[in-house]
Amino acid sequence: MPFAPTPPAVPSFQTPLTPRAYSCACGRPVFFRNSECLACRRALGYDAHRGALLALDPVRGGGWRQAGVPPRRAARYVRCANLTSAAGCNWLLPAAESQAGHSLCLCCRLTRTVPDLSQPEAATWWCRIELAKRRLVSSLVGLKLPVVPKTADTDEGLCFDLLMPAADGTPVITGHANGVITLDASEADDARREQRRGELGEPYRTLLGHLRHETGHYYWQRLVEHTAWLEPCRALFGDEREDYAAALQRHYAQGAPADWWQRFVSAYASAHPWEDWAETWAHYLHLVDTLDTARSFGLDGERVELSYERFSEALLHDSGDPDAGGFLHLINSWMELTGVLNELSRSMGVHDFYPFVLSGLAVRKLHLVHRIVHSTDA
């Protein structure tokens, strides 16, 4: 199978790309969403480019700096203006960005349209969506993917329109078009989303999953469509020039093929090559961020008491990737870790943490996504 030119060697992922374990200056553990330490009441803020949740001290004259760092060496920050909005954002802006006229952090600047806050539940839904989006964007930054608001790059930038359902019942269609991701804000309603999950027979449906999937369509345009990766993607995912509307109509009328699990990460991935790519992209972000979190807290698939048949390098022998073994280590660690997490979920009587089975072909597709992601980190 032909593949694109080999990118630089891929990291082994022994160290999290996006760390998820943090401590306050007082020594107590704090977490990604925290804006204040519950122990000492010190202000906290997230620096996306450092991948760090920082304990903060106020700076005379305005702004903040990292606690415990000598003032002359400490970077100066401004807190995102959405800290006090319904979005409850705890991210930081470098002082230079504030001086350039920005009041919102990188993640909040990606939101072009906020839900109509005069509508019932809109503020709650906006908060939930932004929390999921911050998790997404922090991972994208950690993977060194291009994250540029559309206000800064109208051609290749990214933005989100978070829309409320129309009063007349006209549905909001979640999707992506030329860097604009539209999301039905009612997906943040847990009861509605669970109802839709059941109606569509989906084992997994979350806000974060939606956002990761739709960014897959965006990054197809940025990283694949006009690059040397296009033909390798067509070889594995299929020809995206297939009639998209007709393919979706057929999928919703007939469902996925009976053997979809042998070739795809999900039933919906079988609808069209673009959806296969987006579902595989989302799946890759799921596993990388979850492993980052597990390793941040000292957990690793290699340490669990489960023995799976591991994917071997023979599966990727023709990929042309000199670090195929590093990727397989990532996948095998993931399978072992999720086996234990599924058992923990069952102990609580809830849905499996990871309700998927990966086939060899699905792993080959994930490997190609992995290579494309890390080809941007040269």
Rank of each mutant, 00 (worst) to 15 (best):
T154R: 15
D155K: 03
E156L: 14
E156R: 13
E156T: 13
E156H: 15
G157V: 04
G157S: 03
L158C: 02
L158P: 02
L158S: 01
C159S: 14
F160M: 12
L162R: 09
L163R: 15
M164R: 10
M164S: 12
P165M: 12
P165D: 10
A166W: 11
A166S: 15
A166T: 08
A166C: 13
A167V: 08
D168A: 06
D168Y: 09
D168M: 08
G169R: 06
P171E: 05
P171Y: 11
V172E: 08
G175A: 05
N178E: 10
G179K: 10
G179Y: 12
V180L: 11
V180M: 11
I181S: 03
L183R: 06
A185E: 08
A185M: 08
S186C: 09
S186Q: 11
D190M: 03
D190Y: 07
R192C: 06
Q195E: 07
Q195I: 02
R196M: 13
R196C: 02
R196Q: 14
R196P: 01
R197T: 02
E199H: 11
P203E: 03
P203C: 03
R205V: 02
L208D: 00
H210L: 15
R212Q: 15
R212F: 12
R212L: 07
H213Y: 06
H217V: 02
Y218T: 02
W220A: 07
Q221Y: 11
V224A: 00
H226L: 02
W229S: 08
P232T: 08
C233P: 01
R234V: 14
R234H: 12
A235H: 14
L236S: 05
L236R: 03
G238P: 05
E240S: 13
E240T: 11
R241E: 13
E242Q: 15
A245I: 08
A246E: 14
L248G: 06
R250L: 09
H251R: 14
Y252W: 15
